[in-house]
Structure formats: structure tokens, C-alpha cells
Nucleic acid binder design. Structure first.
Length: 780
DNA sequence: CTTCTGATAATTTTT
DNA sequence: TTATCAGAAG
């Protein structure tokens, strides 16, 4: 019996019942042919190329509903991976609607990391861990690496632990264990010691019974490779696999998936469906390989490819602008989005303003105006390239009394007080957790300083036991001074006491007691600083959220892996977030500020990844514009304060890449010059010049010239035929010397008082001494 | 051992 | 501009 409908459209079927095939299921109503095809093609490998706003999530969730409905597999036999918790949650909700609320049955729907952790815990002993291992976050990671660097006598100034963490993360993203690295891979870090320390780091993690984010996948790969029977178990379990945002997978994730999707004697076809959009790949810096999506057909021979190109979100003008922009990228599979909205809509507005303050003011006014016209704040969003841009908007909105909400700011669990509290919980449940112990031994202050800690460390290392164990032994000796000894003894007995209480009492209750009895709460109550009350509030919130979890372990897992922050969705508020955070969302009106060279495209992306970096930035721009349903409003500031210093900026090259006929340029009175579109007139491409001045004397031009010259000497990543403005110019020495008379755009005339590389101290006639960047001054 | 001070550095995106 | 860190003084 087949339930596959003959036609895409359903026949107005009634509610979904568990009876098979009686009618065309309702969930297949209202789909376009491609979507329908993507949903019902459940057997064999399938690649769905889903452009922005083409109903990707709908396809994914409906597909799962379809598999369930047709009884091809049961809920626990479907593996569905997403990148973010948000996406996972959304999918759960939507599937829940199809299936009628019984979502309990989708245990294998989640992020790569949460599913990786889940699998790893079941077989932890096979990779040298215990099933209750701790998941370390970046902070822990860095502190651990710091210790290892110290032990290796590496100069931390020159080779910061943070940087090493990046290097190691990079390896892990590529699926590389220390043993798979050769001398040649060591790179320059700390004179090639990186591999050695990576090895030590991994060993240390095992001792600590801990895994970092990368391990959740990397150790999973090792587990599957070394234990074919375990892998076979999952082969049997997962009848269908689905992957969201496939363009964002890194090598490790790819390997992990491929192991699970392997064909073998038990199955000759992999029912794996991946959904993605190469034009929305924006996580290359995190190790994502667009290649994965580009070579899917090779990996899975006979794979079916379906393109979703009908956009149900944006007006044709918005879509045209976005398509035109992204067409400048060379590395893409190529799609042609067509609008289904049937509305031309408003043109893309581009506003040039004097500085970032004015930008915030303008956008604030626009928002108020829209609000007066009856638009909800919830339907508007400001998407920035870098999080520091957010502050200006927040400031402005506070003075305006405009409701806003910041999405994806500092995560709840990254706050100091939360991490401290968690460390207490961790050390109680997990006595081997040295990192947690170190974090809280002297918080609040107990008179246990460096000297004492070092002693504990030495003892622990000598005996090769965790710190807590070493401490237990040390307090029985005279190694410690009496005062410290009794303090430590007291602390340890508290640990024991709390651990005991956890056996019988509810964990949230014990947690509260821990925070009180340790003096941690008191510490913040005594703190007179402005943010102390907020921190206490956060601690309360922490305890409250613990109540939702059955076990403490479950709660700790949630904290480690889930970035969920309760956002008060109920209020009407403008959203402020980064472009990265905006992926997958949509708004009627989208404000895109800061379209300036150096900020967007971001200088670092250009410096570090050259052309591919530029293309990724362009995809980011594409993502930004395609978030808009009805209105996209771009803006750029001619001056921006980067860190204390004013920098002048030139318009983003992306502005030149927009089709002139759907763009409407606005220029506020306070700026001079204008912007030029279409890029036909090269002389005015970076057009922000004083009308009385030659083009070739503008700072932007001069800077570009200088960069252009200096670049022929170093072989840093460059972009052919593009003039790349760099904000800093570390290599060359200054063109100026003390006593030179100079001219600065904002500060006017002045005299050079000191030269420090490319930074100059200048005494200005009008504003006194200021530090400025050489690139922003000129000879009068 | 703690606290204060001054200096210095660093500013993208995140599971 | 801001946060963080090291060093010196208490």
C-alpha cells in the first residue's frame, strides 16, 4: 500500500490519524512541486539546495512527519541534526504540531554537539572517559592550556593560550587527533610545541574526566572507528538521517556523519537527507567546509538533488538586490531565486551619515516613524556585523525609550557568577574536576593564595591524583600553615556534606544551600558595585531553572551545551543582533548599518582568508538582505570610533555591487559628498570627497595607494584588482616625524608630538593632544 | 595574602 | 573606550 499522493495537492484531508493511507495527509497540502518532491523522496541520499526563504524548515519537518506517518521508521529511529539549539527546538515544536504533541519520541533530534555527547556518554569507557564526564567550555579550555604552557616554559605573552586554543580547535574541526599530526603540522606556535601540548592536553582531559566541544565529535569518530560493533548498533538504529544547514558542517562533523551513514553489508543505501544553501555558508572561520555540500553527490553516488528556488519571503526588489550581490561570488553552485510574493515593494534604502551616532539616531527615527504607521517593533531588526556596533543603538534606544532586545549577547552561563556557581556544583558532583576546584577554592576569599595553591598542585602532580584528593592528604601533614590547613579542611568537609545531601534532597535546594553556606551569596551581597544585584538575580534564576531538570547531571549538560536564554518574546521590541545570529530569521523591516570597508567586509576576514574571506563576507551581506520581507535599509557612517579613536571610512564595496535600479540613495545633510552606484565611474568609487579637493587626495585614496604599494612586498592575502584599505599598518615606519605639521579631517591642524609606529600623538590647535592613526592624517 | 594601581592590550562571527 | 593583567604597596 502506498500513501504517496498522485498529485502535489492534498484533497482536503481530515486530521492526521494513525490509520494508514486512507487519504492524502493534510501536511502535504499547499506545497510546491519541489518541496513536495523533497518530502516524499525519503529513500536514498538526497541533497536539498534551499535558497533563502524557500521553506527549508518546512520541508525538513514535514519530511520527518511523513516518515513517521507512513510508518517507515519510528521516532527514535530518525537522526536529525541541526547546528543550533534554536533550530532544534523549532523543529521539535513543528513536528510536535504534526504528530499531535507527542514529541517525546524524538530523542535523536538535536545539535551535533548534544547528540555527540549523548552517544559518547553511552560508550565513554571505550574512549577513556567515564559516562559522567564534564564538558569544558572555552574558558576552562584556556585555563587548562595556560597551565600546560607554563609547564612547558612557553612565554605566555608571545604565545597566548587563547591562540593555542584556536590552533587546537582548528585541528579538532578537521577531525585530527594528536597522533595524526606530524612535526610539519606543528606550525610556528611556540616554536613548534603546539602538537606536543595538544597531546598533553588530551591526556589531561582524560585525567580530569572531561571533554571539550571538539571532543564530542572527535572522540565520537574515534569510538566508531575503533569499535565497529558500536557503530553497527547505530547503523541499525538510525533508519533515516537528516541534516540541517549542511553548508556549515566542518570536516569532523562530516566524518562523523559519514560513518553513521555508511553503507555496508547490512544496508545498501543510506537514507540521508541534507539540506543547505551554499550561499549562506558563513561559518568558514569556524572550520565549516562549503566543500561538503559541493561534493555531496560524489560522497553518495546516485544522490538526488532538489533545488528550492521559490522564495516566499521577500519582495522582488529585495530579492533582486540580494541575487545581484551574491552573483559576485565565484565559488557557488548557483541558484536563481524567484519571488513568489508578487510585490515589487520598496527600493533598498542606502543612507550615508556622518558618524555612527547619527546612524543610530536616524535608525531610531525610522523605527519610530514605522511604529507610528502601525508597524510592530517585533517586525523590525537591526543586524550588525560586529557586536560592538550594538552599544550605540542600545544607548540611543534607551534615551528614546524604545523597547529593544539584544539577541545572542553574552550567554547566561558565561557570566562570572554563573560559572562560579556551576564550579561549586561540579566539584561536589565530580571531585576530579580540578578546574572547578581551582576556580572556587578562593572564591569567596578564604586566604588561600598562589603559594598555597601551588603547593596543592605540586602534591597532586607528584602523586598523580586530582587536586581534591591531594588536598585531603596534605591537610594531614604539616606542609601547610595551620591557618590554610584548617580552612581547607573545613572546605573539604563542606564538599562531603553537600555531596551527601545531594543523595537525599532535591538538587536545587542543595544548590541554594551550597551557595549560601560557601559564602558565595554573601560575597555578592557585600559587593557594593552596580552589577552585584543583577548577579544575585542571575543566581536566583540559575536555581530556578535547575528545578526544571530531573537530575543535576541533566542540568549541567543543559548548561554546557545549550545557549538558550529566556527571551521575553511577549513584549513588542526591536531586535538587535549580529548578522550571524540572524540566519534563519526573518523580519518585515531590516536595518543593516555599518556598510563600510574594514567593518563590512571585515578587515580581518580579508586579511586572514583573502578572496574566500571576502566571499564569505559577501554571503553574510546576502544573508542580511534576505532576512527582509518588505524593507531593507542599509546605512554607512563616514566616521566611526573604533577604540577611542575616530576613523574615517569609505563605503563598502558591497554597496557598489547592488543593482542601481532597486536602490535609493539618501544622504543626510550633515555628510558631504555622496555615494555612487553601479561602479561605472571608477574615479568616484570611493566617493566621500570634498568637492573642492582632488579625488586623489582623499584619505581613502591615499590609504589605498599606500596599502597597494606596501603589499607588493609582503605576500599576505590580497585580492586581485581590489584596493584593500587596512586600518593598521604595522610593518612600515611612519612617514611623519616629530614636529611635522599635519592636517586631520576631524581635528584640523596640528603638530606631531610623538611617533609610535603608525600611531601618532598630535597636538591639535583646537582639541589638544590626541592619539591618531597615521593613515587618517595628511600633509597640509 | 589582598588590594590597589597603573599599564597595556585588544577589540568578529559560536556549538 | 574598555577590560584585563601584572606588579607594587599595604
Amino acid at each position: 500500500m502506498t500513501d504517496r499522493p498522485a498529485k502535489p495537492q492534498g484533497l482536503g484531508a481530515g486530521p492526521i490519524t494513525s490509520q494508514l493511507g486512507a487519504r492524502t495527509p493534510q501536511y502535504l497540502d499547499g506545497l510546491n512541486p519541489e518541496q513536495h518532491d523533497a518530502i516524499v523522496s525519503v529513500d536514498g541520499p538526497l541533497l536539498v539546495l534551499a535558497g533563502a526563504g524557500t521553506g527549508k524548515t518546512r520541508v525538513l519537518t514535514t519530511r520527518i512527519a511523513h516518515i513517521l506517518h507512513t510508518r517507515r521508521a519510528r521516532a527514535h529511529e530518525i537522526l536529525a541534526v541541526t547546528f543550533t539549539n534554536k533550530a532544534a527546538r523549532e523543529m521539535k515544536e513543528r513536528i510536535g504540531k504534526f504528530v499531535g504533541g507527542a514529541i517525546e519520541g524524538m530523542p535523536w533530534l538535536g545539535t551535533f554537539h548534544s547528540i555527540g555527547a549523548r552517544i559518547l556518554r553511552r560508550h565513554a569507557e571505550l574512549v577513556g572517559l567515564k559516562s559522567d564526564f564534564t564538558i569544558l567550555d572555552t574558558d576552562d579550555q584556556i585555563r587548562l592550556l595556560k597551565q600546560l604552557l607554563q609547564a612547558e616554559n612557553v612565554d605566555e605573552k608571545r604565545w597566548p593560550a587563547r591562540q593555542l586554543a584556536h590552533v587546537i580547535d582548528g585541528w579538532k574541526n578537521k577531525g585530527l587527533q594528536p597522533s595524526q599530526l606530524s612535526e610539519a603540522d606543528a606550525g610556528v606556535f611556540a616554536d613548534g610545541k603546539a602538537v606536543k601540548i595538544y597531546q598533553q592536553y588530551q591526556a589531561r582531559l582524560k585525567v580530569l574526566n572531561a571533554a571539550d566541544f571538539g571532543d564530542l565529535l572527535l572522540e565520537g569518530i574515534r569510538l566508531f572507528k575503533e569499535n565497529p560493533t558500536v557503530l553497527a548498533e547505530y547503523h541499525q538504529r538510525f533508519k533515516y538521517m537528516l541534516v540541517d544547514e549542511y553548508q556549515d558542517t566542518n570536516v569532523a562533523q562530516y566524518l562523523w556523519l559519514r560513518l553513521l551513514a555508511q553503507t555496508n553489508e547490512h544496508r545498501d543505501t543510506a537514507n540521508v537527507c541534507v539540506v543547505g544553501d551554499d550561499d549562506q555558508s558563513i561559518y568558514g572561520w569556524r572550520g565549516a567546509e562549503v566543500d561538503n555540500i559541493l561534493r555531496f553527490e560524489k560522497d553518495f553516488p546516485g544522490a538526488k538533488v532538489i533545488r528550492l528556488e521559490r522564495n516566499y519571503r521577500s519582495t522582488s526588489k529585495i530579492l533582486k538586490a540580494a541575487s545581484h550581490l551574491i552573483a559576485h561570488n565565484e565559488d557557488r553552485l548557483g541558484k536563481t531565486l524567484q519571488t513568489d510574493v508578487g510585490e515589487e515593494g520598496e527600493p533598498i534604502a542606502v543612507t550615508s551619515v556622518w558618524d555612527s551616532e547619527e546612524e543610530a539616531r536616524n535608525i531610531g527615527e525610522d523605527i519610530e516613524q514605522l511604529q507610528r504607521q502601525g508597524h510592530k517593533l517585533n517586525s523590525m531588526a537591526i543586524l550588525v556585523r560586529a557586536s560592538f556596533q550594538m552599544r550605540e543603538f542600545e544607548d540611543r534606544f534607551i534615551t528614546l525609550g524604545l523597547n529593544y532586545r539584544v539577541i545572542g549577547g553574552p550567554r547566561f552561563y558565561e557570566r562570572k557568577e554563573i560559572r562560579d556557581a556551576l564550579a561549586y556544583l561540579r566539584i561536589v558532583t565530580q571531585p576530579a574536576d580540578d578546574l572547578a576546584f581551582e576556580r572556587i577554592v578562593n572564591v569567596p576569599k578564604r586566604g588561600l593564595g598562589d603559594a598555597t595553591i601551588r603547593l596543592l598542585h605540586d602534591a597532586a602532580r607528584a602523586a598523580n591524583v586530582p587536586l581534591v584528593q591531594a588536598t585531603r592528604e596534605l591537610i594531614e601533614t604539616d606542609e601547610l600553615k595551620p591557618k590554610q590547613r584548617s580552612t581547607l579542611r573545613g572546605l573539604l568537609s563542606q564538599f562531603d556534606e553537600w555531596a551527601m545531601r545531594l543523595q537525599t534532597l532535591p538538587h536545587s535546594e542543595v544548590a541554594e544551600a551550597i551557595l549560601d553556606e560557601s559564602g558565595y551569596t554573601q560575597m555578592w551581597q557585600n559587593d557594593k558595585s552596580a552589577d552585584a544585584p543583577g548577579r544575585l538575580e542571575n543566581l536566583k534564576e540559575l536555581i530556578r531553572s535547575m528545578e526544571e531538570f530531573e537530575t543535576l547531571g541533566g542540568f549541567l549538560e543543559h548548561i554546557a551545551l545549550v545557549m538558550d536564554r529566556d527571551s521575553a518574546d511577549a513584549d513588542d521590541a526591536v531586535s538587535i543582533m549580529t548578522l550571524h545570529a540572524a540566519k534563519g530569521l526573518e523580519f518585515d523591516t531590516v536595518f543593516l548599518p555599518g556598510w563600510e570597508e574594514g567593518l563590512f567586509p571585515h578587515q580581518r576576514a580579508l586579511d586572514e582568508a583573502g578572496k574566500s574571506g571576502l566571499e564569505e563576507e559577501r554571503r553574510l551581506a546576502y544573508v542580511g538582505i534576505t532576512r527582509a520581507r518588505k524593507r531593507a535599509k542599509l546605512s554607512l557612517a563616514q566616521n566611526r570610533r573604533i577604540h577611542g579613536l575616530w576613523q574615517s571610512a569609505i563605503p563598502s564595496r558591497f554597496l557598489d555591487e547592488l543593482p542601481a535600479d532597486v536602490v535609493e540613495v539618501k544622504d543626510t545633510g550633515s555628510s558631504y559628498g555622496g555615494i555612487n552606484y553601479g561602479g561605472r565611474d571608477q574615479a568616484t568609487k570611493f566617493d566621500r570627497r570634498d568637492p573642492f579637493e582632488s579625488v586623489y587626495e582623499t584619505p581613502g585614496w591615499q590609504r589605498a595607494q599606500r596599502q597597494h604599494k606596501s603589499r607588493s612586498f609582503d605576500r599576505g592575502p590580497t585580492i586581485e584588482g581590489e584596493l584593500v584599505a587596512r586600518s593598521t599598518n604595522t610593518a612600515s615606519s611612519s612617514r611623519y616625524k616629530v614636529g611635522d605639521k599635519v592636517l586631520h579631517l576631524k581635528f584640523g591642524e596640528g603638530t606631531v608630538a610623538a611617533v609610535d609606529g603608525n600611531k601618532l600623538s598630535i597636538d591639535f590647535a583646537s582639541v589638544g593632544r590626541k592619539k591618531v592613526l597615521e593613515s587618517f592624517i595628511q600633509k597640509p
